[in-house]
Design a binder for these strands. Structure first.
Lengths: 196, 196
DNA sequence: CGATTCTTTGAAAACAGTCAATCTGTGTGG
DNA sequence: CCACACAGATTGACTGTTTTCAAAGAATCG
């Protein structure tokens, strides 16, 4: 049910801004409500991304594939997060990334044009968007610091702390890819830790 | 001369927005004009950051110091870039980072409150700020991808490509710290490349 | 010039990646 | 219900990369 999905979004907004019922009446019809089955793609490399995607349930991953065919996961998005390729959106060029569903998921796609209209017309929505932006930038800064200063094991421990709940729903090989280490190395790190 | 520094800022804005002379008249008096000598600190760990700093000339670095006393450089900012600690600014909490001058530098500090006032009052300034935000987020995403998918040598080559000009003005040991490798490893990478 | 900082080099040790085999749990079709 | 296939996770042996530690060589600055 779309309205159930939108309800999750409404709850989410309360963290960042006080939107009125009249605001929500303008926002709701703009959204495109999608269910994604595990493995299904939301964006494929080469397509141009046009949305702002809110994840209501499940989990998506954003990854690129290198020349050798290896996948590199640049980000996960679980419920109450956003996903998309800002670079493709802003430049209007084909994306270098893929986004697919790690688990069965429900998302709301806000087309960029309508989304920007909401930003202009609804000050609370605008405020929320800026806050979310700031927070994702800070999150990526923390992640960079983790990568340049930590060993494989420390990165994994930092991951468990920074994204509690992720480790339970995301396969280990994807976590390894996110951390920039091999699944074998992650497996060995976990083995040592569990024996303690 | 402060006006010479502001002139650099004026030129810079043209990339992102069309600000009028009347806009600039509002912006100029808000800025605090500072010269930093090599090694001088703009922000020290523990202080709360309150500004948006535009780099007119020179180069700054943002770094944290871990328990072992090792410095980890999370970012450089050369002329026509911005520096600061968004996390401290937004949370109003003491910063975990230091920012100091790699070379003699000139910066304009825009106090957060006055900066936000400019954002509200000048639509062009607002537009520019959003664009800059988006661009720094995209830059950090690219950097993350580089870290999870590249070897030490590939990271260095990607660095040379992504930040042309940086390698000439920044000491090698700092580049190594930025890349998350040791100065010895960077030295060996460069040795091999120069012999080709 | 002397002091400091930055860079390079060498050898050994630690760390992480590769390749190949095996194990585990899940789900599907006969 | 069983057998099988498949994806995910683990293990072992080996290889390659990066760090560490120690020393020495440039470069820069007062």
């Amino acid at each position: 049910m779309d309205s159930a999905i939108f309800e999750i979004f409404k709850q989410y907004t309360k963290r960042y801004a006080e939107l009125t019922e009249s605001d929500f009446e303008k926002i709701e019809p703009v959204g495109i409500y999608r269910k994604l089955r595990k493995g299904q793609y939301m964006l494929q490399e080469g397509e141009t991304w046009k949305y702002h995607a809110f994840i209501a349930s499940g989990c998506l991953r954003t990854f690129s594939v290198d020349e050798k065919g290896n996948e590199h996961i640049v980000g996960f998005a679980i419920s109450n997060w956003w996903a998309g390729d800002l670079e493709s959106l802003k430049s209007n060029k084909p994306s270098k990334f893929n986004i697919d569903a790690v688990n069965d998921s429900e998302v709301i796609l806000f087309p960029d044009r309508a989304y920007n209209k909401l930003v202009t017309e609804l000050p609370s929505f605008h405020k929320m968007v800026i806050t979310i932006h700031d927070r994702s930038f800070m999150a990526s800064q923390r992640r960079i610091l983790s990568y340049i200063s930590h060993s494989a094991e420390e990165k994994y421990l930092a991951f468990l702390e920074m994204y509690p709940g992720f480790a339970d729903i995301i396969p280990k090989n994807m976590i390894a890819s996110f951390l920039g280490i091999t699944r074998e190395t992650l497996s060995r790190i976990r083995q040592v830790r569990d024996n303690q």
